[in-house]
């Protein structure tokens, strides 16, 4: 187990290096002049251009620029914007919002998706199973835009108007965890559907495995056969999906963040690309990669806990 963990941790280093290098070179290759765009349609005085170019190492070769960035990053410094603000400060607050949103979505996804998948797998081929499958298909087909506005209208506006219950805030992040309920569900929508189907399929497959037949032949109670012998094996692909999804949920929430007016990373990233704030873009993407890599690391460690065959390889 120890060796597996160490080897897996070492693998993180080249992944992070490669990812940051890739992001940096893509952003470097973007057309346009960030300094010229700062002055709008006016001409920037030459000495200011020279000073800014010097300050941001814009004349240095690509690799030198990358090196500057990387050494800053290793000290926890994400650099500064062309307007002079620290990227770390800009990102920090947004990261918190995005993380809250993603975690809310992840919890909903796990509870609803795994629960429904389990329910359907144990009733495979029956009416309830078909109903669950149809519902997930519907959830996959309806775009976030629609679920977002419909839920805002129904649970946010109409519920309050007709019953006076004001439980689901529909805008901003000012109401603590409640602010994330609706957007969390909207963001989790398709993931819930996929996870339901994944859980259903893997559990149903596992229930037909030889070792489950052995468990039946041993005369074990049904609860134990499903809950112990099948579940542990069926969880392996589910955990993988959840881990990979955390990164996706954080990076792909632009629409949800916009609908619910949540100041998260998605919105910031979109704005920064639009305004050519390259340091911010690189910073956010690097951070997302970091989340992705860490989530996958946790998944791989969980793997080893769930499946002994991996531990001893």
């Amino acid at each position: 187990m120890g060796r597996y963990v160490i080897r897996r941790l070492l693998q993180v280093i080249p992944v992070l290096l490669g990812a940051t290098f890739l992001i940096f070179s893509v952003v470097f290759a973007l057309p346009g002049d960030p300094i010229a765009s700062m002055a709008g349609d006016k001409r920037m005085p030459p000495h200011i251009v020279a000073e800014l170019t010097e300050r941001y190492h814009l004349d240095d070769p690509f690799l030198v620029q990358y090196w500057h960035y990387l050494s800053g990053l290793l000290q926890g410094d994400f650099g500064e914007t062309f307007a002079g603000g620290g990227v770390s400060e800009i990102i920090a607050g947004k990261f918190q919002v995005s993380l809250n949103l993603a975690l809310t979505a992840l919890v909903m996804e796990t509870v609803v998706g795994v629960g429904l998948g389990f329910y359907a797998a144990l009733r495979r081929g029956r009416a309830q199973d078909t109903l669950v499958l149809a519902a997930t298909l519907l959830l996959i087909s309806v775009p976030t835009l629609v679920t977002g506005f419909v839920l805002q209208l129904l649970l946010g506006v109409e519920l309050k108007r007709s019953t006076g219950i004001d439980f689901f805030p529909i805008s901003g992040a000012f109401d603590g965890w409640r602010s994330y309920l609706l957007p969390g569900f909207v963001l989790a929508g398709t993931s819930i559907a996929y996870l339901t189907r994944l859980t259903r399929t893997t559990l149903a497959e596992t229930l037909r495995a030889d070792y489950v037949r052995t468990a039946v032949a041993k005369g074990l109670p049904r609860r134990r056969i499903v809950g112990r012998h099948a579940l542990r094996n069926a969880l392996i692909p589910v955990v993988t999906y959840l881990g990979a999804d955390l990164g996706t949920l954080m990076g792909s929430a632009v629409i949800t963040e916009t609908i619910f007016n949540l100041p998260g990373l998605g919105q910031e990233l979109f704005r920064s690309i639009y305004e050519r704030q390259q340091p911010v873009v690189v910073g956010i993407v690097t951070l997302l990669v970091l989340v992705y890599v860490l989530a996958n690391l946790v998944v791989d460690l969980l793997y080893a806990v769930l499946d002994p065959r991996i531990r001893y390889e």
């Binding site: 070792y211 037949r213 052995t214 041993k218 012998h229």
Partner: peptide, 25 residues
């Protein structure tokens, strides 16, 4: 029936690798 299985009638299978649960000792 479950009370008979395992206790009074037991069974062994062809492929012990797949018939044993891989994640338990």
């Amino acid at each position: 029936r479950a009370r008979v299985r395992g206790r009074r009638i037991a069974m062994i299978f062809q492929d012990a690798l797949s018939a044993l649960n891989p994640v338990f000792t």
